[in-house]
Amino acid sequence: MTPAATAAGTRDLPHPARDDIRLEDVLHALSDPVRLRIVRDLAADSDALFSCSHFDLPVTKSTTTHHFRVLRESGVIRQTYRGTAKMNGLRRDDLDVLFPGLLDALLAAAARQAARVGTG
């Protein structure tokens, strides 16, 4: 980390490089309903960044932290600090290059399932 980054309060979080993202890690991350819900929310406005507190999740704060870490470490999301807030964005470009059509297919299937079983 550069001295300027430290002075500005910037902290880097570890993310896999595009070439290190593995299909089985992405599928594992998206197999959890809470994590899939986070990704669906991010995909609705994929150019925006949202803080962790933006998401109204039915789990504790520590469990929320765990879910975001799994998504980040699998390469599904990118997290950056803005002040003290962790901002989250979907790594759609990386996922689309590595696994064309996968994210769109999963999001469409999740939307159909939500409509069918009445969940958001």
Rank of each mutant, 00 (worst) to 15 (best):
residue 82 R to E: 13
residue 119 T to W: 04
residue 120 G to T: 14
residue 7 A to F: 11
residue 58 P to V: 05
residue 14 P to Y: 07
residue 102 L to H: 05
residue 53 S to I: 13
residue 78 R to E: 06
residue 104 D to M: 04
residue 90 L to M: 10
residue 96 D to W: 12
residue 36 L to Q: 00
residue 32 D to F: 11
residue 44 A to P: 01
residue 71 L to S: 03
residue 115 A to S: 06
residue 103 L to W: 03
residue 65 T to D: 12
residue 42 L to Q: 03
residue 55 F to T: 03
residue 64 T to P: 00
residue 51 S to R: 14
residue 59 V to I: 15
residue 111 A to T: 11
residue 87 M to T: 04
residue 36 L to Y: 00
residue 65 T to C: 08
residue 42 L to I: 06
residue 34 V to I: 15
residue 58 P to M: 05
residue 109 A to I: 04
residue 120 G to H: 13
residue 88 N to A: 07
residue 113 Q to Y: 08
residue 54 H to P: 04
residue 32 D to Y: 13
residue 6 T to I: 13
residue 70 V to F: 03
residue 36 L to N: 01
residue 111 A to W: 00
residue 76 V to R: 01
residue 68 F to Y: 09
residue 10 T to G: 03
residue 31 S to A: 15
residue 40 R to Y: 01
residue 40 R to Q: 14
residue 82 R to Y: 07
residue 120 G to F: 13
residue 99 F to A: 10
residue 15 H to G: 11
residue 44 A to H: 13
residue 44 A to W: 11
residue 63 T to D: 10
residue 7 A to R: 14
residue 9 G to Q: 09
residue 13 L to N: 00
residue 83 G to Y: 07
residue 19 D to F: 07
residue 45 D to I: 01
residue 26 V to C: 12
residue 105 A to R: 15
residue 1 M to I: 05
residue 93 D to A: 15
residue 6 T to F: 10
residue 33 P to C: 02
residue 68 F to A: 05
residue 42 L to T: 04
residue 9 G to P: 10
residue 7 A to S: 11
residue 52 C to Y: 02
residue 70 V to N: 03
residue 106 L to H: 07
residue 86 K to M: 14
residue 99 F to D: 07
residue 32 D to V: 10
residue 112 R to D: 15
residue 78 R to P: 00
residue 34 V to W: 02
residue 18 R to A: 13
residue 37 R to K: 09
residue 67 H to R: 13
residue 115 A to V: 00
residue 68 F to N: 03
residue 75 G to Q: 07
residue 44 A to Q: 12
residue 9 G to K: 09
residue 2 T to L: 11
residue 5 A to P: 01
residue 16 P to E: 04
residue 11 R to Q: 11
residue 72 R to Y: 06
residue 71 L to M: 05
residue 2 T to N: 12
residue 2 T to S: 15
residue 43 A to C: 01
residue 71 L to Q: 06
residue 22 R to F: 08
residue 46 S to V: 04
residue 7 A to Q: 11
residue 76 V to A: 03
residue 40 R to I: 05
residue 26 V to R: 12
residue 112 R to W: 10
residue 80 T to N: 09
residue 37 R to D: 08
residue 104 D to T: 14
residue 21 I to M: 08
residue 39 V to Q: 01
residue 91 R to A: 10
residue 107 L to R: 02
residue 14 P to W: 08
residue 97 V to H: 14
residue 28 H to Y: 14
residue 47 D to R: 14
residue 70 V to Q: 09
residue 19 D to E: 15
residue 81 Y to N: 09
residue 73 E to V: 02
residue 48 A to T: 11
residue 36 L to V: 00
residue 33 P to Y: 05
residue 87 M to R: 11
residue 10 T to Y: 14
residue 62 S to L: 05
residue 56 D to T: 12
residue 110 A to S: 11
residue 100 P to T: 03
residue 18 R to Q: 12
residue 40 R to N: 02
residue 31 S to E: 14
residue 9 G to D: 11
residue 61 K to E: 15
residue 76 V to G: 01
residue 97 V to P: 00
residue 66 H to A: 10
residue 38 I to L: 03
residue 55 F to S: 04
residue 107 L to C: 03
residue 29 A to L: 02
residue 72 R to W: 06
residue 120 G to R: 13
residue 96 D to T: 13
residue 24 E to N: 14
residue 104 D to F: 05
residue 99 F to Q: 10
residue 8 A to W: 02
residue 106 L to M: 15
residue 79 Q to E: 15
residue 24 E to H: 15
residue 30 L to Y: 04
residue 115 A to E: 11
residue 91 R to N: 09
residue 34 V to P: 04
residue 30 L to K: 04
residue 116 R to K: 08
residue 102 L to F: 09
